[in-house]
Design a protein around this nucleic acid. Structure first.
Lengths: 338, 338
DNA sequence: ATGAAAGCGCTAACAC
DNA sequence: GTGTTAGCGCTTTCAT
């Protein structure tokens, strides 16, 4: 067994109360006893038991983070930021991989409830009523990252997707492109799906370009395969297309891959702009021009927000729209030159 | 406050012991009281407190996982497997991002000790004496994944790197290449550095090919940039090179990127084989031929091993070498054709 | 400055 | 079949 506070007390010939005070830096003892106790702690290799502490303090110093896909490149970067902020604030983080399954999400939420985590970060998914009920039951702060909830009043940290998509599209327009297509998400997805498609449409219309159903190929997911499969169909619907906006970097790179196979040169014959700025964006060929979301920062910010909410430094956190920017690499060409 | 077992007992007019029995599925009560208690649990929305449980059982049902770089693509995939196995076994996982810093690692280890985790998974790094001492103090099972320890007797789950490198190199040789270079790691790295370089050297020598210092460019890291910067220097040392083996996929893709910039066609003029089989391997262009490590599986296996060690289903876990394979994509050409 | 003692919410003997 | 009780390791009054 590990030594307990009792053992230390005995070894130092003081009461456990005194040891507790010293360990926790509370006032109420002489310098001398402090020295003595510290020597005992050292000698026995005493480590306070966080479980016992948690039981009494009602604070576990741990938070839970839920991702639809922990191994996704987007999640990993966000996680890094969250973990960093949590650690700096004195918290540990329990990761939960929901695989976008409602059942699993609920299971995890219950688990986190039993484990008495002090707060929750919920990433990249829509907050269902079921989840929200549990949040309320748990009575712990929750912050959303890379998502938001129209229905429930929950603080979020994200990028304005409508604006991001709008600007990505305008960037293409400024480069002289007139026939622009989009590889988009789903109409069912209120987070990354709808707003990005709306931003795209609005940018076209605002610039006097026509927009039709044929300008977008929709997808259930945002993965490489989705992008790869979307290019041919988009090309069929929009034969004159000289540039495209993909709702995610993975999709953009999928489209790039399809283009290579079809013998279409990027960016000479087809310009592509992505969304996310994942690490792969600069690794692919040609390096991908894309809308950069500050993923790690978003994780960090949401982590800090949660920590400060837990510590009670603020009652209501104000949501944060994080700045995005367009990172110019080499997948978009200037159509004016042609 | 959340309702406690006491509240349930009162509400159901039974003792807390009875509630405890029912909640834990132990024998000793009539069907009738069970129904009654379950209704009370339902009515109050009672959730057992895992902290109180942990204090008494000396089991927290959580494990700690340490990664040098959580957001790395390798780590993320391993993490997914670990999390999955842990969850299936009834455990939660606390992630720790050590950033390869000894100080941070020790800090995390101490934290995990205070939190009384039931076991530890240590990934992709060398086990320093300092760490090992803490492992022993903690008296919890530890399993290594994607690494191993020559000095200490710790079970591991990994791929035989020497063999992987050997076969990757022989693959190139079978394709008719005779001037083969390598972008390697560091001599200081006993895990991924040395064995992969030795495997490379051995393959060359076993096949009657000469090996010199000039055949390898060494690196401190295994990242995209390292690979990108290594290609020019390797090319200078080995001008006739027609193929190269990179000690990681990131490096391979970095080399590919450099090749594109230098106007060297892959695989027509230069064949490249990587190591890892990350998700990006099939996303880049041309898709990367590489040595596939079953990353998610390795995580899963190490997680299962740890769980079974914790549950005491086995005393000493036997380490596992996981099978690897060469995934043929399009970055290697047959030199016989030329 | 220091100690005794009452819990935190639960499990596990041990009684009845 | 059910209840009583003694802790698990700690923090925190309240005395002294």
């Amino acid at each position: 067994m590990n030594p307990t506070i009792k053992d230390v007390a005995k070894h130092a010939n003081v009461s456990i109360a005194t040891v507790s005070r010293i360990v926790n830096g509370l006032p109420g003892y002489s310098e001398e006893t402090k020295k003595k106790v510290q020597r005992s702690i050292e000698a026995l290799g005493y480590q306070p038991n966080a479980i016992a502490r948690g039981l009494i303090n009602k604070r576990t110093q741990t938070i839970g983070v839920l991702f639809p896909d922990v191994s996704g490149m987007l999640s990993s970067e966000v996680l890094e930021g969250v973990e960093n902020a949590a650690h700096d604030g004195g918290f540990s983080v329990i990761v939960c991989n929901t695989t976008s399954s409602g059942k699993r999400t609920v299971k995890y939420l219950r688990l986190l409830q039993e484990k008495r985590v002090d707060g929750i970060i919920f990433a990249s998914e829509d907050v269902k009523e079921e989840y929200y009920k549990i949040f309320q039951e748990m009575k712990v702060p929750v912050v959303l990252v890379s998502t938001a909830s129209p229905k429930y009043d929950l603080p979020f940290v994200r990028v304005n997707d409508f604006d991001g998509a709008f600007q990505a599209t305008e960037y293409l327009i400024r480069k002289g492109h007139k026939e622009i297509g989009m590889i988009g998400g789903s109409d069912e997805d209120p987070i990354a799906g709808v707003p990005r498609m709306q931003g795209f449409q609005k940018a076209l219309e605002s610039n006097g370009l026509s927009f039709t159903e044929n300008h977008i190929t929709k997808n259930e997911g945002y993965r490489f395969q989705n992008g790869k499969e979307s290019l041919p169909s988009l090309l069929k619907k929009l034969p004159g297309m000289t540039a495209l906006f993909a709702a995610s970097d993975e999709m953009a790179i999928g489209a790039m891959s399809a283009a290579h196979q079809l013998g279409i040169k990027v960016p000479e014959e087809l310009s592509i702009i992505g969304y996310d700025n994942l690490k792969i964006a600069e690794m692919c060929y040609p390096p991908l021009t894309t809308v950069s979301q500050p993923l790690k920062d978003m994780g960090q910010t949401s982590g800090e927000m949660l920590v400060s909410l837990i510590k009670g430094e603020q009652q209501e956190a104000k949501s944060r729209y994080m700045p995005f920017s367009i990172v110019e690499r080499q997948s978009v060409s200037d159509f004016h030159d042609k």
